[in-house]
Design a protein around this nucleic acid. Structure first.
Length: 968
RNA sequence: GCCUAGGUGGUGGAACUGGUAGACACGCAGGACUUAAAAUCCUGUUCUUGUUAAGAGAGUGCGGGUUCGAUUCCCGCCCUAGGUACCA
């Protein structure tokens, strides 16, 4: 601890008594900062921001009113998962944007709902619990408190009385309740919506299975009413399970026997588990699933009605992957069955030279001949070790095995070889494809590799080098469709296949039903128990089904999920509960409704609240959720609408994707000695090629503008204590950089707290917006933050004299001053409406530079300017607003200034420029002339005549009626 | 592999619908004020060439194309990021 030597501060200037003290100050930067804050009488962000954050909290400034007088506006953020690393600078990017928009909408007179909460169930807390034995609820609580503190420091206008946490029993009670509704519903294709299962039961009892058009499992039975009524309870339940929207189905998972658990693809790296490096294999398991495919078409159609970024819509479209084609059966007489395939190119059916099954296909074992048994089994064993992602990514290696069996071509009856190969995925379509090497490149490569026939089927095909799938020619080698075009052939073939009962037109979706069960602890328990091996819902009054206590958060020795460890955990002390929990997306698939009415004990939200707030008007979040959360949420919303609980078909009207903020890692270069061992000398980036070096991550927090703080570096790690440096010519140590994901291990996590400490929340808010377009992914750097901080100081000085006394003039503003003001009103409003916050911040800077140049301190200007800036920098503007004598804390609800175009009219005529024999003219901005008038003006201009020099004008080119080009 | 997006000075980025590329800001260089530092202010700053200057040439990942005119539109390629179904 250094004692502060006596210094004198005079008009903000520190007077040092002697050189010794000055040198001491310069040596120790913290000390210098201390002095700086002492003398900084001008813009003191710290006290000012504390003051207003406290004021807003004390006065509940942002508690949303129950008034229905104002129009409503619902601004939603994707709520965070409270991770142990705390909030990093990437999180607030979207929150700042939504806060700016919320504050803007309040100024515009809207009743704004802007809530925040936590998606607090998740894997990391469970991993941490496994390592430390701490209950995930405890660590989650700690993390949430830290998040809250960090969020509060940024000055958001959240209504915290609306907070939700998905891991609260009060909340997940309703997640479980929605699961029950899904279990109790089926999808009626006639009504094109979900309806209660009782209606199906009634229908079965009176009419049997006839006349039911449902989205259901493939293997549903046909029965009469009498048969249904004769079914045992068990048989009935088994049949109903095939219809329910939440149902049990066998699906493939990454099974790690050593860990006794299922792993996410993410947790599997190169065929082994990320933790421990144990082998992982594909295994089938009975799992809860959600029949999201029932909604495939509606999810697709809904995309036409929402105001979302086009790329995101495209991603969802492709994910759903609707394709129109045909299903075709290739009979396998020896097994008295058929291989069903889906194809979008039924017209190529005469080009089929073999059939390929996924290695997991159920018929593989039966089809494999004794001669081929070893080859097939080996192949299957290899495939089991590959994840689906690996299989899709690797298209270079051609692999497969012949089963030894043949199928019959459905029309020609020819014998066709049956192969297995891992390029066919069990989860897509029927898990089998008809291979047409002449028309499909993957089939072509496969046929070449295994020397299978390649049959040309069109007179326009060129298959010398590769497959040719064009649809332009007429068919050859194709029996009765020879000579036909594509358009003629498809219906003719479908008709023939239908007649043979070996095929039909079919729509297929790429999207699969969503697996809903997780073999984890830290999630919502599924409110189901088992009786005679069949699932039943618990009583609704018994909700919530609480997550039981367990001794360890690991699977049992027998590979059962952690919930199996709970003691005496039985329904009515008799029946086993479901042991898997719900996936992360369950809680986030409906949370925006809970915000409307978070305390409600009778319903997930009151009808009144749902009717008033309706859909989310603006939703801001990352595009990484494009095909996960955003699809599941739409699915649950549609389901809730079908049952009449909510009114909107689409939950999120407008959506903005904020880009991910990546880490910008810094490196130092350790010089290596002759043996390649690390020395204690570090060479600067620019000189590193003169030495043998090893790059090492260095904490970005001790680097500024890529220059390393040498003193802090020595303290960074004990072994750097005696580090020596080879510096650049300017005496600095410059670090290398790389863009990587933000992570603790790369020392590139930047925490907003430090920035707020040094520069304040308003600077952070402005800077995050200034960094670049909201939607663009970008690496974090603080290189430009000084400029934003300077801007705020300039704003402060507009209102203060040299002695830092508040002072504004009551005089009437000049024309130039009004012009500066109205320019920013117009620009800021335009930018905010199109979410171009970065250009807006630049415009604010230009405006303040103009006002400073004009030495403008007129109240009439500044009071309006404060309102326009307020959404971006709420603290400083609240302070200035109250200094202006306005009611404290009411700036958020003041009326947004109205732009007046009169102030922007320019009088001077623009100048002509000559270049490359062409001319360009800038005409007055707000002149609003039509093309003809502009033409006359231009021709009357002496400069134009001079440049034309007697030449005739060939063409006028008008752009926005403002700028033209003349071709002479 | 497939789907989606991006690539512009030393750096972040601007250019909104095809119309003066580099606004605004950082950094850097020089200057003013100061015994000095900080703060503040002023000037310059795409690159190459040119003694300064005037000027000339090149230039928005690479190669082509459309157009009077292309960072913007089209075709092909390279690189980077996100997603790819149990991370959230």
């Amino acid at each position: 601890m250094i004692t502060l030597p006596k210094i004198t501060i005079f008009q903000g200037i520190i007077l040092f008594k002697d050189e010794k003290i000055y040198k001491l100050c310069m040596k120790n930067r913290n000390f210098a900062v201390l002095i700086q804050s002492q003398k900084s009488m001008e813009y003191n962000h710290k006290s000012l921001e504390n003051k207003w954050q406290k004021f807003w909290a004390d006065h509940q400034t942002f508690k949303v009113a129950d008034t229905h007088e104002k129009p409503k506006y619902y601004v939603l953020d994707m709520f965070p998962y409270p991770s142990g690393a705390g909030l990093h600078v990437g999180h607030p990017l979207g929150y700042i944007a939504s806060d700016i928009f919320s504050r803007y909408k309040r100024l515009k007179g809207f009743n704004v709902l802007h809530p925040m909460g936590y998606d607090s169930f998740g894997l990391p807390a469970e991993q941490y619990a496994i390592q430390t034995g701490q209950h995930p609820a405890v660590t989650t609580e700690v993390n949430i408190n830290r998040y809250r503190e960090q969020l509060d420091n940024i000055g958001f206008s959240f209504d915290w009385s609306k907070e939700v946490r998905t891991s609260d029993a009060d909340y997940y009670k309703w997640t479980q309740w929605i699961f029950m509704q899904l279990f109790n519903a089926w999808y009626n294709n006639d009504a094109d919506k979900a309806v209660p299962i009782e209606e199906l039961v009634k229908h079965f009892a009176s009419h049997g299975s006839a006349g039911i058009k449902a989205v259901a499992d493939e293997d549903i039975a046909s029965f009469t009413a009498a048969e249904w009524n004769a079914f045992s309870e068990e048989e009935q339940q088994k049949e109903l399970l095939k219809y329910r929207l939440a149902f049990l189905r066998e699906s493939t998972v990454n099974w790690c026997a050593a860990l006794g658990t299922v792993l996410a693809n993410d947790e599997v790296i190169g065929g082994v588990s990320e933790r421990g490096g144990y082998p992982v294999e594909q295994k089938k398991m009975m799992q809860w699933s959600m029949r999201i495919t029932a909604y495939a078409d509606r999810l697709l159609r809904g995309l036409d009605t929402v105001d979302w970024p086009e790329p995101l819509i495209e991603m969802q479209r492709n994910w759903i992957g609707k394709s129109v084609g045909a299903s075709v059966k290739f009979p396998v007489p020896q097994l008295d069955t058929a291989i069903e395939v889906f194809t979008t190119r039924v017209d190529t059916i005469y080009g089929v030279s073999f059939v390929v099954l996924a290695p997991e296909h159920e018929l593989v074992a039966a089809l494999t001949t004794d001669a081929q048994k070893e080859a097939v089994e080996n192949y299957i064993a290899i495939t089991k070790k590959k994840s689906e992602l690996d299989r899709m990514a690797d298209t270079k290696t051609v692999s497969g095995a012949f089963t030894g069996s043949y199928a019959k071509h459905p029309i020609s009856g020819e014998a066709i070889q049956i192969w297995i190969a891992d390029y066919v995925l069990a989860s897509y379509g029927t898990g089998a494809v008809m291979a047409v090497p002449s028309g499909d490149q993957r089939d072509y490569v496969f046929a070449k590799h295994f020397d299978l026939p390649i049959i040309p089927i069109s007179d326009s095909q060129n298959i010398e080098e590769q497959a040719d799938g064009n649809k332009d020619g007429r068919y050859i080698n194709s029996d009765f469709i020879n000579g036909m075009t594509y358009k003629e052939a498809v219906p003719a073939l479908i008709e023939r296949l239908e007649a043979l009962k070996l095929g039909k037109a079919k729509v297929n979706f790429r999207m699969r039903d969503a697996i809903f069960g997780r073999q984890r602890y830290w999630g919502e328990p599924v409110p189901v128990y088992f009786k005679n091996g069949l699932p039943y819902l618990i009583n609704e009054e018994e909700l919530p089904l609480l997550l039981p206590e367990v001794d360890k958060y690991l699977p049992t020795e027998t590979g059962e999920p952690p919930l199996a460890r709970a003691e005496n955990w039985k329904y009515q002390d008799a029946y086993d509960y479901e042991l898997s929990t719900m996936p992360g997306w369950a809680g986030s698939s409906w949370y925006w409704y809970r915000y409307m009415d978070p305390q409600n004990q009778e319903a997930f939200a009151s009808k009144d609240a749902v009717d008033y707030w309706k859909a989310v008007d603006l939703y801001i979040g990352g595009s990484e959720h494009a095909t996960g959360h955003l699809l599941y949420a739409r699915f649950w919303n549609k389901f809730l609408k079908d049952l009449g609980y909510v009114g909107e078909e689409e939950p999120f009207k407008k959506l903005i994707n904020q880009g991910m903020i990546q880490g910008r890692s810094n490196f130092v270069y350790r010089v290596l000695d002759a043996e390649g061992k690390g020395t204690n000398t570090f060479v600067s980036y620019g000189l590193r090629n003169e030495y043998k070096t090893m790059p090492l991550h260095v904490d970005v927090n001790i680097v500024s503008n890529d220059a390393l703080d040498l003193a802090k570096f020595k303290d960074f790690r004990p072994d750097y204590k005696d580090a020596e440096f080879i510096l650049e010519n300017n005496g600095k140590y410059i670090c290398g950089t790389e863009v990587e994901k933000m992570s603790k291990s790369k020392f590139n996590v930047v925490n907003p707290d430090d920035i707020i400490e040094t520069y304040g929340a308003d600077t952070l808010r402005l800077y995050e917006m200034f960094l670049g377009p909201l939607e663009q992914a970008k690496p974090w750097n603080t290189n430009g933050i000084e400029g934003v901080y300077k801007f705020l100081k300039k704003v402060w000085r507009l209102f203060h004299d040299a002695e830092n006394n508040f002072q504004v003039s009551e005089d009437e503003p000049t024309k130039a001053e009004y012009k500066a003001l109205h320019k920013i009103i117009k620009k800021a409003e335009e930018d905010i409406e199109r979410f171009s916050f970065n250009t807006s911040v630049s415009a604010f800077m230009i405006c303040v530079n103009e006002l400073t140049d004009l030495k403008c301190n007129k109240r009439a200007i500044l009071q309006e300017f404060v309102k326009v800036l307020h959404p971006y920098a709420p603290h400083i503007t609240e302070e200035l607003w109250s200094l202006l004598g306005q009611q404290a804390g009411q700036l958020s609800y003041a009326a947004y200034p109205i732009f007046n175009a009169d102030y922007l009219v320019e009088s001077e005529f623009a100048y002509p420029v000559s270049f490359n024999g062409k001319m360009k003219f800038n005409l007055p901005l707000a002149l609003d002339l039509d093309a003809k008038a502009v033409e006359e003006l231009v021709l009357a201009n002496a400069d134009v005549q001079r440049i034309l020099d007697g030449k005739a004008i060939k063409k006028f080119i008008f752009v926005k009626g403002k700028i033209i080009n003349i071709v002479a």
